[in-house]
């Protein structure tokens, strides 16, 4: 995948979720079909930390089950970086198990949030263009 298609409303929802969770990291899933995101699932970060996240396992499981039942794929996994740049941290890289998904990172370091998307495969990070639809 070299582009991530996301409707503007979903981008707005991601940014609102990230700001709401500040100073902690927010996390969630974008679901869609054929590489186009259609739905957002905001998921609880059980780490309650500014430098770490882990999706609440039960919620993650329920969301993935619902996506399967609705024929949706996980187009992206998003999380925020309240105190660092919009780039995967070493921990993001080492725990990037879902290589077919795109990792979206929102940095809240500056007044204006910065949102970027990456493919993380076998420890190699590649930036993906976000197309606002």
């Amino acid at each position: 995948m070299d582009k991530l298609f996301v409707p503007r409303e979903l981008i707005a929802e991601i940014l609102a979720h990230c700001k709401e969770c500040y100073p902690y990291e927010a996390c969630g899933i974008l679901a869609g079909q054929f590489g186009v995101s259609k739905k957002i699932y905001k998921i609880k970060n059980i780490e309650k930390s500014s430098v770490s996240y882990m999706m609440e396992p039960g919620e993650q499981f329920t969301v993935m089950k619902e996506m399967r039942e609705q024929g949706l794929e996980m187009t992206a996994i998003y999380h925020s970086h309240p105190v660092s740049s919009a780039y995967p941290s070493p921990k993001d890289v080492s725990l990037a198990f879902y290589q077919d998904s795109v990792y979206v990172i929102v940095s809240l370091v500056n007044d204006e949030p910065l949102i970027k998307a990456f493919e993380i495969k076998d420890d190699i990070i590649k930036e993906i263009e976000i197309i606002y639809s």
Binding site: C27, I29, I43, E47, V51, S52, Y53, M54, M55, P57, Q60, F61, M64, K65, I77, H79, P88, S89, P90, K91, D92, L95, A96, F97, Y98, Y103
Partner: peptide, 10 residues
């Protein structure tokens, strides 16, 4: 039985 890798990072 479902095997589900966690979604986590930093």
């Amino acid at each position: 039985v479902s095997i589900v890798p966690a979604i986590a990072g930093g």
